[in-house]
Design a protein around this nucleic acid. Structure first.
Length: 496
RNA sequence: GAGCCCGUAGCUCAGUCCGGUAGAGCAGCGGACUUUUAAUCCGUCGGUCGAAGGUUCGAAUCCUUCCGGGCUCACCA
């Protein structure tokens, strides 16, 4: 089963490599210069008649992986595939010569090969290169998955992504789309005066989110370091330093559960805008996403797992409390009284604890009963302050945080808020977190004195936000699992 | 961490309910075929049935444990 197992086919092909060497042929030469890709041929010959194509006399030098062979004895049709696509090649003994055709017969599906030739159109209408020259470039010694069904085994697809990418065109397209998505986000932010920065992935004090970190150790410094759970506190230090609009697209690491929505390392966009508060941030986010989705997919509407999602209309906005009030039989007393809220949750099979503060109970109710139904992009704003330890309190309602989350297709996509810039308030909240940590909460924050010092110098009024890039990639590629948009998702290691 | 499901040839899958000589297609190998499209036709090789133990005259099939994966839940974004 394992990739190390000595399959019969693998052994035969390795023997074949030795036979090829014995014939004086290098199975891995590197002096071939490709001059064209498959797409060049398709593009050049588009809109031409068969006669024009054959009369063109155009010469192409192509290279790629041999994906299919249809052998007729003294002639063969093959398909080769390169980074741009596929092209059919006609291998004819008359043209290649006795020796050339014998060389071709050494090829196997999966080999990397180079060919030179001229285009024509076959009887069945397929644009094809008639090869005048052909050379083996890289011998492949493992059999490819089946041509028709492809590779379906999810475990092999994730563990040996290279095979998945060879076999499944739609997987390649998914990762191209992901890349385009990120490029479009960068361009949008760069075009709006943002500076892209890189802040530490290894941090002495992991901050900016409530999550269990991974720990590592630096030998020379003789200190433990944590893989970051968020770049937040560093990015805000940069706003203190005068970079008024900054962003970072990079990995975060959280030592927590794995699911279709969670990978231990995941990619997050975090950005900060000075002189904006959370309402301005919602406006900005809406324009950013509409534009990025349109540039990435070509439309402002998409279908995710059978559900239509519309980015073209103004995003829905509803306050957290208002959304709860819309629930069946949810009354004011459930909003104000923790015991009533507990009853409400337990009556609907939501796991809550007597120790949960009111805001946390409300959040659990929201997550179970409301979040899954938020299909079109929806901002939910004004969260309970108890579940928003990093955001600024509302000046008018101190129990409410100036915070919003954006939900799309039932997924939490973004989390943003007006930043807390009062150093004494921040210090106090750190102290509370430290107390929780000492009473056993591993996710609670540690004290970050230097961050307090930075705030002492003065953080201008600022709003900041994190957008989960993997989840956004799931949306634009219609992927059901986060592992389908991460090239190498983590798997348990195989015991041999 | 808990529940449910899955693991059979290189790949895609039957066979497991109801125990009785491990199958198919593709790929491979040999042969025919100079415009095919999952090419076709003839022949042929290929298995630690995830692993270990147990029940049984006999286990891919029933039982137990373990390994790996998927989904749901919990935590989280």
């Amino acid at each position: 089963m394992s990739q190390e197992s000595e399959g019969r086919l693998h052994r035969l092909r390795r023997e074949k490599v030795e036979q090829i060497r014995d014939q004086g042929i290098n199975p891995y030469p590197n002096r071939f210069r490709r001059r064209h890709v498959a797409q060049d041929v398709h593009r050049d010959m588009e809109d031409r008649t068969h006669e024009e194509i054959e009369a063109s006399g155009a010469e192409y030098v192509l290279a790629g992986r041999l994906m299919a062979v249809r052998d007729f004895g003294k002639a063969s049709f093959i398909h080769i595939e390169d980074g741009s696509g596929r092209i059919q090649v006609f291998m004819k003994k008359d043209v290649l010569g006795e020796e050339g055709y014998r060389h071709f017969k050494l090829w196997d599906v999966g080999d990397i090969v180079g060919i030179a030739g001229t285009p024509f159109v076959t009887r069945t209408g397929e644009l094809t290169i008639q090869a005048s020259d052909a050379v083996l470039l890289t011998k492949s010694v493992r059999p490819l998955p089946e041509k028709w069904h492809g590779l379906k085994d999810i475990e092999i697809r994730y563990r040996q992504r290279y095979v998945d990418l060879i076999a499944n065109e739609e997987v390649r397209e998914t990762f191209r789309t992901r890349s385009r998505l990120i490029t479009n986000i960068r361009e949008y932010l760069d075009g709006h005066g943002f500076l892209e920065v890189e802040t530490p992935m290894m941090q002495p004090i992991p901050g900016g989110a409530t999550a269990r970190p991974f720990v590592t150790h630096h030998n020379t410094l003789e200190m433990d370091l944590y893989l970051r759970v968020a770049p937040e506190l560093y990015l805000k230090r940069l706003v203190v330093g005068g970079f008024e609009r900054v962003y970072e697209i990079n990995r975060n690491f959280r030592n927590e559960g794995i699911s279709t929505m969670h990978n231990p390392e995941f990619t997050m966009l975090e950005f900060y805008m000075a002189y904006t508060e959370y309402n301005g941030l919602m406006d900005f986010t809406e324009e950013l996403l509409r534009e990025v989705v349109r540039r990435t997919t070509g439309a402002e509407q998409l279908v995710y797992q059978g559900k239509a999602v519309d980015f073209s209309r103004p995003f829905d906005r509803i306050s957290f409390a208002e959304s709860l009030r819309g629930l069946d039989r949810f009354e004011d007393r459930h909003l104000k009284n923790p015991e009533d809220a507990l009853d409400y949750a337990r009556g609907r099979d939501i796991q809550v604890s007597d120790r949960d503060p009111l805001g946390k109970i409300h959040l659990k109710i929201f997550e179970h009963l409301l979040e899954p139904d938020l299909t079109d992009p929806t901002f939910v704003y004004d969260y309970p302050v108890e579940v928003s330890p990093l955001s600024r309190r509302s000046d008018d309602e101190p129990e409410t945080a100036e915070r919003f989350e954006l939900f799309i297709a039932g997924m939490e996509i973004a989390n943003g808020f007006s930043e807390l810039n009062d150093p004494r308030d921040q210090e106090e909240r750190f102290r509370e977190q430290v107390a929780e940590r000492e009473s056993g909460d591993e996710e609670a924050h540690m004290m970050d004195r230097d961050y307090i010092t930075a705030l002492d110098y003065g953080l201008p009024p600022t709003a900041g936000e994190g957008i989960g890039i993997d989840r956004l990639a799931m949306l634009v590629t219609d992927s059901a699992s986060i592992r389908d948009v991460i090239l190498f998702p983590h798997q348990r290691s195989v015991q041999s």
